[in-house]
Amino acid sequence: MAASESQTATETMKLEVFRFLPDEGELPNFQTYEVPYRDDWVVLDALNYIKDEIDGTLSYRWSCRMGVCGSCGMMVNGEPKLTCSAFLRDYYPNQIKVEPLNYFPVIRDLIINMDQFIDKLGEVKTWLIPAEEKSVDEGEYLQTPAQLAKYKQYTMCINCMLCYSACPVFGQHPDFLGPAAIALGQRYNLDSRDGGADERADVLFSNEGIWECTFVGECSEVCPKNVDPAGAIQMAKVTATNDWFKGLLMPKGKKKSGGDQ
């Protein structure tokens, strides 16, 4: 934690935190904690203060505290945020409401179940399916900086799930592949080394894939890493549509989707 003991905090602020303890059989409720206010503290620092000093039973996930591990996503005043990057000073002196990420099942307190997301990655096949086999001994696949740039943005996804909890489509249809899984599928489809777009098409270009998306666009707004999943999905729609027309015009010549656009 960032706190040094040299500075004594006189100001405080209140955190209203979502609690759910299935063992106790209690209904979910909110508990309010008063924490010291420091202008360089983030919401995660406040939660750690609560856990260390006030209430050891509060459960949440965190690890890197520098916005790259993707563990600490929560709803902060109704907005999906990485709590390690949400500063108290942006809310002070108002009370902050902390809840688990929207639309996911809650295991306990602020901890959501995100196992389904990893299953979705498997369905989409988010790994490199080489366009041409080449042994490692033959060296690297050549890829120019321009080719790298075409998919690089989509590699930046930290799997923090903020986009899912901003997506009302996911809220209504939990089977929707969702922004991050589709963006990661696009990441490989757009990689010059990859030739797996056809293998991914059945899942990606399905009704539970891109066509479920109605382009609310909030996934891209809340993404802490500017991945722009909404853009990835719309571009995939264009590709899928082109493929469909190509298939219509040249039923046998239908080949090569995704790769170049």
């Binding site: 759910f20 299935p22 979910p28 109704g78 929207n102 639309y103 099942p105 809650v106 295991i107 179940n113 009302p168 809220g171 209504q172 609310v216 666009g217 909030e218 707004e221």
Partner: peptide
């Protein structure tokens, strides 16, 4: 044992963007 939270019918009033 997990908590499934239903999406409220007025979800689209919860955020100006929605």
């Amino acid at each position: 044992r997990q908590l499934i939270r239903k999406m409220p019918a007025n979800w689209w009033l919860k955020k100006p963007a929605y």
